[in-house]
Amino acid sequence: MIRVTRKIEFSAAHFYHNPNFSAEENRRIFGKCNNPHGHGHNYTVEVTVAGEADPATGMVVNLRELKEILEREICDRMDHRHLNYEVPELAGQIPTCENLAATIWRLLDPKITQGRLDRVRVYESPDIFADCTAEPNGKAPHAAASRDAQEESA
């Protein structure tokens, strides 16, 4: 199996705030990330696609097509946006890099038709990143998607 990784960057604003917490709890849990005016990051997303190289093309995935998918699904939605207010897929979630990685996975997974999505890595800064992968056995609790699980069980 071969893994192919494509990197893409976008810049966006966000802040962390849970309306179910008091103002004091929000400040204690989220610290300066709770600043209601928001702050921003240059996000880097690394998308890894795995599979066997097509004997005819020598490619696991056509990188030009992958780049178009990433631009459409990630940048068109998130670049120069406020993640708390302008990205419907993140509505109701705290826009942490954990939730961003899972959200980007769910956006990309149905669109990747050559090879299969192997990993989404979201760098919030060069020193902080979250990885989203498929659970190897498919049985463990649906980590970032606890919101989905609640919706599904509701």
Binding site: C97, E98, A101, A102, W105, R106, D109, P126, D127, I128, F129, A130, D131, C132, T133, A134, E135, P136, G138, K139, A140, P141, H142, A143, A144, A145
Partner: peptide, 13 residues
Amino acid sequence: MSGPLKISLTRRY
């Protein structure tokens, strides 16, 4: 619909 996902967080020190 994606199957169960695994999330990790990495921090550099």
